[in-house]
């Protein structure tokens, strides 16, 4: 088949192909550059690194010199784990509550349950700080858990709701006609079908909590320091090369988790559906 405008078609391929290459480079480049920088032998951040060394990783794993980083990591993991566990329970229940409803009330409720994803986190972080201090609570790690719970619940709500829409309600009806109790049907039919959705959502929620800045910025303090806030402090003051080592550890951990989650839940398929 012949087309007119072959020069125009060629320009399309050149422009789109060139831009696609540039975009992929922009997406991946920074991750690779951070990984390479973390093995630098220099005390300042230069690229390319003048020599290879693992001293920054040794420094990072040293419990004395990097104790404050370790405790910030422990706080972040604790808050993320508890907030994710709570969010799994309440967000899965909420998704089940409206799974088969198409009414205006269900759509309004769905929009309000998703709203923390759109509303600026920083406004909410300050609001939460005002809320807890006006109620007279002393700063506590529980406030961080509550704040993170609000921000991460939509991730689990969304993936669970998506897996419920592919769920055929006739399965429940036939199990009921065969004499299965409702709890039994939930345990043996509904739960196995929606579990991959819950797990994928829990993974995204956990990562979102670990990365959260706007809520932690206002609710954490010296005693309940969180990892991203600690890293921000390090970037603002000394620009310590250990940040590159922390980044290296996180990038590798995320990479491994992504491959595992993809095997378990089809994460890549789920994200592009």
């Amino acid at each position: 088949m012949t087309h007119r405008n072959t020069i125009s078609d060629q320009s399309y391929s050149v422009v789109m192909g060139g831009l696609a290459t540039l975009s992929v480079a922009i997406l991946v480049g920074p991750v690779i550059i951070v990984l390479l920088t973390s093995f630098t032998s220099s005390r300042v951040l230069t690229f390319p690194p003048p020599g290879f060394s693992i001293e920054w990783y040794r420094d990072l794993f040293d419990p004395v010199r990097s104790g404050h980083i370790h405790s910030a990591l422990a706080n972040s993991v604790w808050v993320a784990a508890i907030a994710t566990a709570l969010a799994v329970v309440v967000a899965t229940a909420a998704a089940l509550a409206m799974a088969r409803s198409n009414r205006a009330s269900a759509r309004a409720l769905e929009a309000s349950f998703m709203s923390p994803l759109i509303l600026p986190g920083l406004s909410y972080g300050l609001a939460a700080l005002m809320f807890f201090s006006i109620l007279g609570f002393r700063p506590s790690i529980n406030h961080l858990i509550a704040g993170h719970l609000v921000v991460i619940a939509p991730f689990i709500f969304r993936t669970t709701l998506a897996s419920l829409t592919q769920f055929n309600p006739a399965l429940l009806e036939s199990s009921a006609s065969l004499g299965a109790g409702r709890l039994y049907a939930f345990r043996r039919i509904t739960l196995p079908i929606i579990t991959p959705g819950i797990v994928a959502g829990a993974f995204l929620a956990f990562v979102a909590s670990m990365d959260n800045v706007p809520v932690s910025l206002f609710l954490s303090n010296a005693r309940t320091n969180m990892l991203p806030i600690r890293m921000w402090g390090m970037m603002e003051t000394t620009l310590d090369v250990r940040i590159a080592a922390i980044s290296g550890v996180i990038i590798v951990a995320v990479l491994v988790a992504m491959v595992v989650m993809d095997r378990l839940t089809g994460l890549t398929r789920r994200m592009s559906m």
Partner: peptide, 18 residues
């Protein structure tokens, strides 16, 4: 997904290096 999941702080740090 990789940059999305590797923390805004790390991505910001990468751009300082760049």
């Amino acid at each position: 997904l990789l940059p999305l999941l590797t923390s805004v702080v790390i991505r910001t740090f990468a751009w300082i290096v760049i």
